[in-house]
Amino acid sequence: MSMNKPMPAPTEISAPFWNALKEGVLRIPHCNACGHWIFYPRRHCDRCFSHDVEWRDVSGAGQLYSYTVARIPTLPDFADEMPQKLAVVELDEGVRINTTLVGLDEAEIRIGMRVKPVFDKVRADGATLLRFTAAEKDFPARVDSTPEALAAEAEAKVAAEIAATSVRQVRFDDEAAMKSLVSDVFTPWSTQVVVDQALIDEFAKLSGDDYWIHTDPERAARQSPFGGTIAHGALVQILQSRLKMPLGFEVTGFNNMVNYGSDRLRFPSPVPAGSRIHARARVKSVEKLAKGMQLTLEVTTHVVGNERPSVINDLVILYM
């Protein structure tokens, strides 16, 4: 999850609720005067106005009151959750909670279905959101969706994909074979890298580009249209080297391989600090030159979930 996603700021009133979520417990206020359950947390009962209210643990069992599937992110930062399965759950105690559904295909969702809570750790400091899944679903009650955990998950998945993909060996001077690599279809997604503030700061130091929109999270939170800092385009461009991609071919037989630069380099959309990025590629063209064989690889790097690339790079490689 991007660091620019809005995060709850617990208050003195609500802290017991958020602290309990970190422990995998759902704790909500209950009115001793009239027996009403209260959500969201308040110091008074929103039925009888009594202040004789105490915290109690509940199971989290309930039913789906309503939901929608958002096809356009409600905020760009939610691109990695697309499509968003926004929901209202009614606990058996009668209170309703705005939440999202996890571990369910769209076709499995129906209003009135029984649901159970999923405690989702979303930040390294333990901050946890309350999501829900179907009661009968075999889905863990506690999940870790910190960017680091999700990137590690993707790493394992892509590693398995790469291991399972047969790699076609192509001699660099076999023009017909090289040209057959040209395709309109991109490779599957690469592994992921978390572009966190530390990485951005290191790049700012290295490059000398320390503009506040990259390096000053407090100012960026106040003044940036993106709600926080964003990575340098050039940083995202070079991070491509860290991404392992299931290309499906290997060029062989050459004496020398030269990175000849780029035919096209664009930064169409920002990468907010804390985002996960991944990339995919396709061979755009192959051309036989006097010097050797020139291959243009179109690599697009995206924030995970965002259809619009953050970097488009037509990388030109010369095999000699």
Partner: peptide, 8 residues
């Protein structure tokens, strides 16, 4: 801000 926006 606390109970809606973080979920989108």
């Amino acid at each position: 801000a606390e109970f809606d926006l973080p979920y989108g």
